[in-house]
């Protein structure tokens, strides 16, 4: 078990280093921030000073080594546009994103487990067919379009919810719904498949023969065994929540790391871009590690191998 965890930690660390390296070179390729910072074309001395302040006058390999050394200490330099360390800017946006992704995750897993279990219990009959089609539709709706249509209906027509911002609990409803929709579609299918496998297995048939009720069967005996494939997919889905967060930040003007990153790309704010993508990568790697550990707790076979 310790070997297993150590292997996982090691591969997580290698992935993180890979992300850091890739981010550095990708960010450099987006062009120079000088043109944006001096739109009128600054004097030679101004540009020189700017380059020196951000280390842009060094050759690329040197910039890379300095970046790597500082990154190892958690220092990603200062933001070019905001007067503070890049990591601080990224970290300050993180709680909002984590809260949004967390709430959306809970909403989608709970909904998917309920819908998927119903579909599996009524497999190949009408409730199953309706749920299956709805979940396929949910997975086919573009996130940004759903956001726009929900603004159109609930904010403009009915005026129940605000169109943007993050001032009250009401302004969370549409972003959470937007981010949850397509994961609900995908997860429901996974839950349904896993539950059908379990419900048609011998021990469940045996339990049914002994007279256990359907509800108890589903929630006590089956769901636990169906949990493995659900946990496995949930990790990928949590990562894709961050894609949704980018769209939500644009359409609903919702704060978070998505908005920061889009802004950083537009402004060519390398330090902030690097810090936030590394932070996002770190969050996803940590999440995958957590999922591996949960997997190990739930399934003793993984622990032994």
């Amino acid at each position: 078990m310790v070997t297993f965890l150590r292997g996982r930690l090691l591969s997580g660390a290698v992935t993180l280093i890979g992300v850091v390296v890739m981010v550095f070179f990708l960010a450099r390729l987006t062009g120079s921030p000088i043109d944006l910072f001096f739109p009128e074309g600054g004097t030679e001395a101004q540009i020189r000073a700017f380059e020196q302040a951000y280390g842009l006058d060094q050759p690329l390999y040197k910039q890379f080594l300095i970046f790597l050394g500082n990154a190892a200490q958690g220092d990603f330099g200062d933001s070019i546009w905001q007067q503070r360390p890049a990591m601080e800017a990224a970290l300050s946006e993180m709680p909002m994103t984590l809260a949004l992704a967390g709430i959306a995750m809970v909403v989608s897993v709970v909904t998917a487990v309920i819908l998927g279990s119903i579909a599996a219990a009524y497999r190949f009959r009408r409730p199953d067919r309706i749920i299956t089609i709805l979940s396929l539709i949910a997975g086919s709706v573009p996130v940004f379009w759903f956001a726009i249509v929900s603004i159109l209906i609930f904010a403009i027509q009915l005026q129940w919810l605000p169109t943007s911002g993050s001032y009250s609990w009401k302004s969370w409803i549409l972003p959470v719904a937007t981010i949850s929709l397509s994961p609900i579609g995908v997860l429901t299918q996974v839950v349904r498949g896993a539950m059908i496998d379990v419900l048609t297995s011998g021990y469940v048939r045996n339990a049914r023969a002994r007279g256990f009720g359907s509800l108890r069967l589903i929630f006590r005996h089956s769901l636990r065994n169906a949990a493995l494939p659900i946990i496995a997919v949930a990790g990928d889905i949590a990562a894709s929540k961050l894609n949704g967060a980018v769209i939500v930040s644009v359409v609903f003007a919702f704060p978070g790391i998505g908005r920061l990153i889009v802004g950083a790309i537009m402004a060519r704010d390398f330090p902030v871009l690097q810090a936030s993508i590394v932070l996002v990568g770190l969050a996803i790697i940590t999440l995958n590690l957590l999922i591996d550990i949960i997997y190990m707790i739930v399934d003793p076979r993984v622990r032994l191998s």
Partner: peptide
């Protein structure tokens, strides 16, 4: 590594 960075980003 490609998979870790959200595809839209």
């Amino acid at each position: 590594i490609v998979h870790t960075i959200p595809s839209i980003l």
